[in-house]
């Protein structure tokens, strides 16, 4: 293995460069996870290309969050492989090491460090040495200060920089968490429901931000808000019962008979059997997806 467990606890190395010569940055292969017999992930295969923006959709319990947990090391899969680039085996690393090799995560429920100021929150998230002595004796360089200011501007919290994070509104906390993600300069961003609790305008800004990030970073978004997904997504992956049901552009996915079947439920199986080849009109499936998503949201 090339990564030496991402450094000692005392001084930790910088982000490693994953080998992406094949164009794929994240390999998830044959991954299964079960909780007390319940299969949360079932032989799941997923490849995220370098610089891609990918949306994950799926009903509750489809395994979206579990997948994120597996990639970020919170849950160890029962079987399967998860690689970062070609050479880094993520299953060998723990959460902090995975974060350090360049995979950042935004949680479904915004979690920021509430007893710290917005500024400190960003400062802690900056890429760089995460060792103890550096933390104890290190001072912010001018560059780092500029970077923090820049991020604060990007997320629109410049005026709130020295507020305790606990005083921020829900939407602001979402932004702060995105800011923390930016500060870490990850190669892959895993974003779990970024726009929950945001106003329409904020949602728009988030969409803008995420699309602008793609290219330099690879972004994986889990979202229930279909309008949002449509506005940003180039490729959509549909998860169902722990495995990938369909993958493709939004319209492809929406017209996929399997997806429609799942979203419309098993009852309609007989009907769909007849005109399987032609599929349902895309509108009806889409409507259903949105209806079901708003219910969950």
């Amino acid at each position: 293995m090339i990564v030496d467990k991402a450094g000692t606890p005392i001084t930790a190395t910088d982000n490693v460069q994953p080998d992406t010569r094949h164009g794929v940055i994240l390999y998830v292969e044959d991954v299964s996870v079960s909780f007390d017999g319940f299969k949360a992930l079932n032989d799941l295969n997923l490849y995220i290309n370098d610089g891609e923006l990918r949306c994950l959709i799926g009903a509750n319990g489809a395994g979206k969050t579990t997948l994120m947990d597996v990639i970020t090391g919170k849950i160890r899969p029962d079987t399967g492989k998860v690689n970062f680039g070609q050479q880094v085996d993520l299953l060998q690393l723990d959460e902090s090491e995975i974060a350090r090799v360049g995979i950042g995560r935004k949680f479904q429920k915004p979690t920021v460090f509430e007893a710290l100021s917005v500024y400190k929150n960003i400062e802690l998230s900056l890429a760089g040495d995460k060792g103890i002595w550096t933390s104890l004796f290190g001072k912010l360089t001018g560059e780092q200060r500029d970077r923090i200011d820049e991020i604060l501007r990007t997320i629109g919290l410049t005026n709130e920089a020295f507020y305790m994070a606990e005083r921020l509104s829900h939407g602001q906390k979402q932004w702060l968490e995105i800011g923390m993600l930016l500060a870490a300069e990850p190669r892959v961003l895993l974003v779990d429901e970024p726009v929950a609790g945001m106003t329409g305008q904020e949602t728009e800004r988030t969409a803008e931000l995420l699309t602008s990030l793609a290219g330099e970073h690879s972004v994986v978004v889990v979202e229930h808000d279909m309008a949002f997904v449509r506005s940003i997504a180039r490729t959509v992956t549909v998860l169902h019962q722990g495995s990938v049901l369909a993958e493709g552009s939004m319209s492809e996915v929406q017209s996929n008979p399997e997806v429609i079947k799942v979203y419309l439920g098993e009852d309609s199986g007989e009907d769909s059997g007849d005109d399987n080849s032609e599929g349902y009109p895309s509108e009806s499936g889409e409507e259903y997806i949105e209806a079901s998503s708003s219910k969950e949201g």
Binding site: E95, S96, A99, R100, V112, F113, A184
Partner: peptide, 12 residues
Amino acid sequence: DAESRVRFVGYK
């Protein structure tokens, strides 16, 4: 306050 979050930021 949020130990697991600290981990996801890259600290041990």
